[in-house]
Amino acid sequence: MNIKLNTESGVPIYLQIIEQIKNMVLCGAMKAGDQLPSVRDLAVELRINPNTVARAYRELQHEEVIDSRWGEGNFISDKFSGSATLEKKKIIRESLKNLIGQAENYGLTKTEIKKILSEFFTEHDL
């Protein structure tokens, strides 16, 4: 599974896993009904504590991103796909917030930020 973990970011590993799996669903790499690797396999692959994987899967289950079918494994649920749009929006807004924050860090005023953004939108036909 194409998950890359960053130990330096300060973000707990299980959260990174959750994020990246959600991402995969949102960009279509995983669709409803696709099976996720077992806790053991993913832990081995990523070389992390199986508990961490288990925790991530539990959280995902709680958020109804995945279904855990007894004796069969973990599968992407169709409920998440349904609320995908909401989720996507949430993520993009989060990114934008980070972007604005970074701009403010550079000491840019709100006017300057707006200017940069509109220039960007014009160039990219948005």
Partner: peptide
Amino acid sequence: IEILHEKERTIFFSTHIVNEVEKLA
């Protein structure tokens, strides 16, 4: 990690290569 998964086992790991165990600990 494989054996960690099956039963409740405890691992006590002393090392210098910290980044290797960073994700595991």
